Amino acid sequence: MLFHFKDQFPHLSTYWDKYLPHQKRLEVPAKTILLEEGKVSQQYIYIEKGCVRAFFNNNGDDKTLQFFFENEGLTSLPSFVNDTPSDITIETLEPSVIYLLPKKYVSQLMDEVSHEPGFLKMMLQIFARRQMHYSSLLISFIRDTPEQRYQNLLTERPHIVQRIPQHYIASYLGVSTVHLSRIKSKLAKGKPHF
């Protein structure tokens, strides 16, 4: 579960090395479903190369929650932990190289690492970072206009704008593709010309 944090916690490298053989490496095309909404998550996903999207279906309309890139990991955590149906779908947006670690080995890894000094602090730091990210997104949806959300995206996560198709960005921002085009046009007109 923690392979993407191995560089931040090098003192735990023996654990990473031990569980590498249990990961399944896959080279998959774009639009590959890694977890389907309604299925129980049984794998932790690590992205070596490519881009992955987490989304849910809202009456036939996809709503994008998050994008994940190289050296990031993900799963539908409530589904993975509680053996409940996932409320999200996870799919690749680009041809990707991913590793899957079955839940059985994730549980074993967590049991072993939990005995290490500082493990609890490390886990709290990891969860706090994710929580801060999702809290800031929620606050932005309540407080900011779609234009401000797009500007925040340009400033804070420009790689999303560079790599992700526009209709997914619109879904992520909670606007239509037409509205996103208007926002981009308005911002382009407001740029100074030299």
Rank of each mutant, 00 (worst) to 15 (best):
M1T: 03
L2F: 08
K6L: 10
Q8C: 02
Q8F: 06
L12T: 09
S13F: 14
P21K: 13
L26E: 12
P29N: 03
P29E: 13
P29S: 03
A30F: 08
A30H: 00
E37A: 02
S41G: 08
S41P: 11
Q42E: 14
Q43R: 08
Q43L: 05
I45T: 15
I47G: 04
E48N: 15
E48R: 15
G50N: 10
A54W: 00
F56D: 07
N57Y: 13
N57E: 15
N58L: 06
N59R: 09
G60A: 14
K63Q: 09
L65I: 13
L65Y: 09
Q66T: 04
F67H: 10
F67Y: 13
F68K: 11
F69V: 08
E70A: 12
N71V: 12
S79C: 01
F80E: 09
D83H: 12
T84Q: 02
T84R: 00
P85F: 10
S86V: 01
T92Q: 13
L93R: 11
I98H: 03
Y99M: 06
L100F: 06
L100D: 03
K104N: 06
L109M: 15
M110W: 14
D111P: 04
E112N: 03
H115I: 05
G118C: 02
F119I: 05
F119A: 14
K121W: 06
K121A: 05
K121T: 14
M122C: 07
M123C: 08
M123R: 02
L124E: 12
Q125S: 11
Q125H: 06
A128L: 04
R129Q: 03
H133T: 11
Y134R: 09
L137C: 07
L138I: 02
L138D: 00
P146A: 12
E147Q: 14
Y150I: 01
N152W: 01
T155N: 05
Q162W: 07
Q162P: 13
R163T: 14
I164W: 01
Q166A: 13
H167F: 07
S171Y: 07
Y172S: 04
L173A: 00
T177E: 01
H179N: 08
S181E: 08
L187N: 01
P192L: 01
P192W: 01
H193S: 12
F194N: 15
